[in-house]
Nucleic acid binder design. Structure first.
Length: 726
DNA sequence: AATCCAACGATTTTT
DNA sequence: TCGTTGGATT
């Protein structure tokens, strides 16, 4: 296993620049790779994995590779496979939470859990905390479960169990009762045999502390540890890594202190700043050659981030030939901003830039709305990234609760969620004695229900309904062995009356929800068992694969981290919005600096061109503001920026940017192709087809907006490019 | 138990 | 301004 490096350069080392190569080949000892935006960090990580395996330094199972998001984990897995194929099978590669879960599943008893423990998501967590608050007689109006949930999560991020919360923390919440509430919450979780996301790592820490021999085994096993986005690690993650790395000390962390934007959810930039102290003899490699952006973009981003203090410091450079400077527009208001961006995108489109290469990155999600409206009017395909996720939708969560209730007889949260859904006439009058019995006997609600229906305590109607509900659950559970799991899931939705509930629902979103249930069943079929499906859902809230259609990406700056686009629009650069007032109020200078890093992340997403804009007037939360332009605009060095101020003073009124003639503005130097005009392709009464909604009839047309009455899905308003003539 | 209306509050969010 | 939530009403 201790072979020398291969003599001949292997394919995965080809094309690496000297620092990248150093980062890849420094296999032993602690290593920090400071990797600026666009400097090929994923390449380095994957090449390093390939080298470790090819040089037989370790078997796949002896390498731990950690990422933050499923997206990053997938990408890394794919790229390693592309490099070395099957040799990579068996790697411990995944998110902190997935790996933490994997370890926890092996020793649940050491964390006081039974093997089939379930994982609560944010929604479950909040419901449970609500119960805890109610039981403790805390006025839920003054002290919302939301807030307590955030407090508990922050404590878990710090690695504090209830008894470890320092005195004086969160004095403000419910007169200092938060630690006690946290304790009660953990006790409830233990009774429910459940964990929340934070527990996945926290229980790992507990196991490692309580059972040093278990820790030792993992320390032995993981000869090499790789960590992506190290600047985003919180204390619990840091402690976890440090424990695992202590023995072999072969830990390689990749990160960029300038891209640390998650301080507000517990990330500690300190982890990356302190790396040399934490791991004695650590080597630091800086990746500074940027392969992504033009010199103007890098110059602007560097000039901006230079205003931050306490950086590790990097100087990004590029050999890319330069093109345009950044453009900063001042516009009258939010609507004008949306018109401007829309018009510019049309110009780009006609110049041959694919919509998929264009992104609009906003500070706060409410900003997307104005752009969506404008894009619909113009008929520009767009997609909002990071909106509500599939498995967070109500119907998905309800259906999942049914599955959980059938699979896990002890899952009280699932039981409570569905016992009266659809409405069966089981209300508070039934639930209260039920809860009382369950509590008194220390048994799950389901079991309590079966006992309660044997007594005279409930009214006849409620008793019969509850009994029949329990029989249904038992019946489905009995069929688990016999029926294919997706068929059973489908049957449960049907026989429970849950589907019927939405069929009868006359709200416009009813058909859509039924479709989502179909989709859910299809997803279930892709897994080997319902357990596998539920485990996947708990960790990956998204359903993979989306529309393949080329479309403009609309998302928050946070959501854009790790992505890149040819053209990036950065609207809303106004004091108060960006930098956000609350970030500054709550965290002072540190908050401002994190906002600045966010701006840096935004700028460095762009390969070719950036358009910043700032509105003189903006409607926020129902009030008109007249903000100052963002200080970040002033911090962009003049030599990389072109400032368009002519729109001020009303010399260029808003209508000038209208759909038809908008492209007077800053037509880029790329070749202009003639416009492909789809207007007039549809008429009222025409029959059309949509990939998802099926066949329908056009009822109304407004520019590129069509209102279509679909045969199965009801009436919808959508962009004409999503439908075709039937 | 279901439906309606008023009051509230509105960064960023992965797992 | 608008969507959500919880209380009050039937």
């Amino acid at each position: 296993m201790e072979d020398a490096l291969p003599a001949a350069p292997a394919p995965w080392l080809a094309g690496l620049n000297p620092p990248q190569r150093e980062a890849v080949e420094t296999l032993d000892g602690p290593l920090l790779v400071l990797s600026g935006a666009g400097t090929g960090k994923t390449r380095v990580l994957t090449a390093r994995l390939a080298l470790l395996l090819a040089a037989k330094r370790a078997w796949p199972s002896q390498i731990l590779a950690v990422t933050f998001t499923n997206r990053a984990a997938h990408e890394m897995r794919e790229r390693v496979e592309a490099l070395i194929g099957q040799m990579s099978a068996g790697l411990w590669l995944g998110t902190f939470h997935a790996l933490g879960l994997r370890i926890l599943r092996r020793h649940p008893e050491l964390a006081g859990l039974k093997p089939s423990f379930s994982i609560l998501d944010a929604d479950d967590q909040e419901r449970l905390l609500k119960q805890v608050l109610a039981e403790a007689d805390v006025d839920a109006k003054h002290w919302p479960a939301r807030q307590l949930s955030a407090i508990v999560q922050r404590w878990k991020d710090k690695g504090w169990r209830p008894d470890q919360v320092p005195a004086g923390e969160a004095e403000y919440f419910a007169a200092g009762r938060a630690p006690a509430l946290y304790k009660a919450y953990q006790e409830r979780l233990a009774v429910l045999n459940a964990v929340d996301f934070g527990d996945l790592l926290l229980h790992n820490l507990t196991i490692f502390q309580r059972a040093p021999e278990v820790l030792e085994r993992y320390q032995e096993q993981f000869r090499y540890i790789l960590v992506d986005e190290y600047q985003d690690t919180n204390i619990a993650q840091y402690l976890w890594l440090r424990l695992l790395a202590q023995h072999r000390r072969n830990i390689c962390c990749v990160g960029d202190d300038d891209q640390s934007i998650y301080g507000w959810r517990g990330a500690e930039v300190g982890n990356i700043l302190r790396f040399e102290n934490d791991f004695e003899g650590a080597k630091i490699v800086r990746l500074e050659q940027n392969y992504r952006s033009t010199g103007n973009i890098l110059g602007a981003a560097s000039g901006l981030i230079a205003n931050n203090h306490g950086r590790l410091g990097k100087t990004l450079w590029t050999t890319r030939e330069d093109s345009r400077p950044l453009v900063v527009h001042t516009v009258p208001d939010g609507e004008a901003e949306a018109r401007l961006v829309g018009a510019e995108i049309e110009t780009l489109q006609h110049a041959g830039i694919g919509l998929g290469q264009i992104a609009v990155l906003v500070r706060a999600s409410f900003q997307t709305r104005a752009f969506e409206e404008r894009f619909v009017t113009l008929g520009l395909n767009y997609r909002v990234i990071g909106g509500p996720r599939f498995y967070e939708r109500r119907e998905a969560r309800d259906a999942i609760a049914y599955l959980r209730a059938v699979l896990f007889p002890e899952d009280d949260l699932a039981f409570e969620r569905i016992v009266n859904l659809p409405k069966r006439g089981i209300g508070d009058a039934t639930l209260q004695p039920l809860r009382r019995l369950a509590r008194a006997e220390q048994i799950p609600l389901g079991q309590a229900a079966r006992r309660l229906v044997e007594t005279e305590e409930l009214r006849v109607n409620a008793r019969n309904t509850l009994a029949s509900f329990c029989r249904s659950i038992d019946g489905w559970r009995a069929r688990l062995e016999r029926e294919p799991h997706a068929d059973l899931a489908n049957a449960i939705l049907e026989e429970s009356g849950y589907r019927e509930m939405w069929r009868k629902n006359k709200a416009p979103d009813g058909p859509g929800r039924l479709e989502n249930l179909e989709e859910l069943v299809q997803q279930i079929a892709r897994f080997d068992s319902l357990e596998d499906f539920l485990e996947h859902v708990a960790l990956v809230m998204e359903v993979e694969g989306g529309s393949e259609m080329e479309s403009v990406s609309l998302m928050t700056l946070h959501g854009a981290k790790g992505l890149e686009f040819d053209i990036v629009f950065l609207p809303g650069w106004e004091e108060g919005l960006f930098p956000h007032q609350r970030a500054m109020d709550e965290n002072g200078l540190a908050g401002l600096e994190e906002e600045r890093r966010l701006a840096y992340v935004g700028l460095t997403r762009a390969r070719r061109h950036v358009v910043v804009s700032s509105a003189l007037c903006r409607m926020v939360a129902g009030r008109w503001l007249t903000p100052f332009p963002s200080r970040f605009i002033d911090e962009l060095p003049d030599e990389h920026v072109e400032r368009h101020m002519e729109e001020m003073f009303g010399r260029a009124p808003a209508w000038r940017y209208g759909a038809g003639d908008g492209r007077v503005i800053n037509a880029p130097a790329w070749e202009v192709k003639p416009r492909e005009d789809r207007a007039g392709q549809f008429e009222v009464g025409q029959r059309v087809f949509h990939r998802k909604f099926g066949y329908g009839t056009v009822c109304a047309i407004d520019h590129h907006k069509l209102t279509v009455e679909f045969e199965t899905s009801g009436s919808k308003t959508l962009v004409d490019s999503f439908v075709e003539p039937a």
